[in-house]
Amino acid sequence: MSASVLDLRNLSVRFTTPDGDVAAVSELSLSVGKGECLGIVGESGSGKSQTFLAAMGLLAHNGHAVGEAIFGGVNLVAADESTLNGLRGDKLAMIFQDPMTSLTPHMKVGHQLTEVLVRHRNLKSTAARDRAIAMLRRVQIPEPERRFEMYPHELSGGLRQRVMIAMALLCGPELIIADEPTTALDVTIQAQILDLIRRAKEELGTAVILITHDLGVVAGMADRVAVMYAGRIVELGDVHQIFNAPQHPYTKGLLACTPRLDDATASALVTIPGQPPNLQRLPKGCAYHPRCQNVMDRCRAEKPPLMSAGGGGLKACFLENFGRFQAGAVVP
């Protein structure tokens, strides 16, 4: 793999709440290569968003990150605000989940775009305007000159998310973190938005971190996938491996939950029994063990470390040859 763009090393995120501290992310290590698309999958509360908000320096007031997030030789976790501000919006961009609330309602779309160029490229307003309109055209917004003068509430959700993407692409970032970029959108719009992100990746060589709970999104976009559970990575591997031969029972469970139309034998919707754990009272041992169908005594006592899963992947599970073991039940 080529040199990495973002390197997370032992990154932990804690939140101070009135009910005590919550460990949202625990000693997570992960790297994203140049031009790579890394999918981050997990249920709500698995820490997938907080991991990267921490890297962006955008945690809520009560959040606190320790560890390292190396980007361009800078540890983002320890960097001061002005260093972060020099990188954010320029080399490091983020697209948020809810385009309805993520744009400033009282500012025209155009101004919200040009201020990025004025900030990072020192452009004069006319030059910034031309660049911004060109970018709006590039993300396939019809009549960009007219939209430029509009307020966010005058645009549809899909157009707003295009504006967010244009905003992220303005300075040609090395890494885009897309936090559930399609969750709030109509299904028909989702594919178009993903296509835009894919094109940005291919045309600009931008690395993309795609945070989602939608496995379908990941399957079509990602090169590698990290599956998160209770603030940790439980499986990391090539997208084909994750989908074809998942090595962790949780990954397998997630895949089984995705409804399939082409499988006549599937009569009912499958769920993973139980609830995601309370981060303040994580079960001893493997956090997934109360919901795991393959639970062993060892899982209740010991926390499984990330270990090789074969094929270059990693898994945090004590089960040997999980994929084959599952297959063995059906095919001798």
Partner: peptide, 26 residues
């Protein structure tokens, strides 16, 4: 607390601008 303040910060705008331009009106 609004989401768009997070967006403004993600753009690398200095804090003063985030407050005066993005937050003050609301």
């Amino acid at each position: 607390r609004a989401n768009y303040i997070r967006t403004a910060r993600a753009k690398g705008l200095p804090f003063r601008l985030v407050v005066l331009r993005h937050a003050l009106k609301s």
